[in-house]
Amino acid sequence: MSSSTEFVKHEVAHHFVDAEQEFDSAKLGMWTFLVQELLFFSALFVAYAIFRFLYPEMFFEAHKHLSWVMGGINTLFLITSSFTMVMAVRCAQTNQNRLTIINLILTLIFACMFLVIKYFEYSEKFHHGLLPPALFTGEGVAPQLPIFFGLYFAMTGLHGLHVLIGIGLILWLIFRSVRREFHADYYTPLEMVGLYWHFVDLVWIFLFPLFYLIG
């Protein structure tokens, strides 16, 4: 598309020997951070496992209040956004700046759609009072029903927060791509946000069957 001379040249930070060391460090740092993220979510999954183990009937009853159609559509949105994200990184690797920007914007759109659907889901729960214990006014057979919604809001809420942060990061990437900062020689931020974004997708891949598809 365009030769790399038109791109903004990247300066390697003073304490690194070369760009390779800088890139490797950033990548390892991001992976380490994601490991941290994984354990951040882990306690929630452990709590989920314990209470599902203790109250299987309650979980079965509770999941009927969630719409698997909405959850399913959201899964598709996130998976698609993950795909456009890798494509954005790949286009930067091959110096196709315009395509990078287009892919990033697509990612942004899917991320926002995810949140829109989440908003509809949440407002429906608020409407029926299916909320964490202190606010719970809903009706149900199982006495422990509020725990399910406590977990549901804690887990999807925290995941939603990560999506929101991701949207902020993608906006930042779009801004920098427009300034032609990413190209075959330097696409570190794209790669890092990409990893983060796939991780957010990864969490949702587990949240979806655990909350929406309790057979």
Binding site: D18, A19, E20, R90, Q93, A184, Y186
Partner: peptide, 12 residues
């Protein structure tokens, strides 16, 4: 640590 830039990265 190779002295090459990021050109050397494998593009999937």
């Amino acid at each position: 640590m190779s002295q090459q830039g990021q050109h050397s990265h494998f593009i999937v």
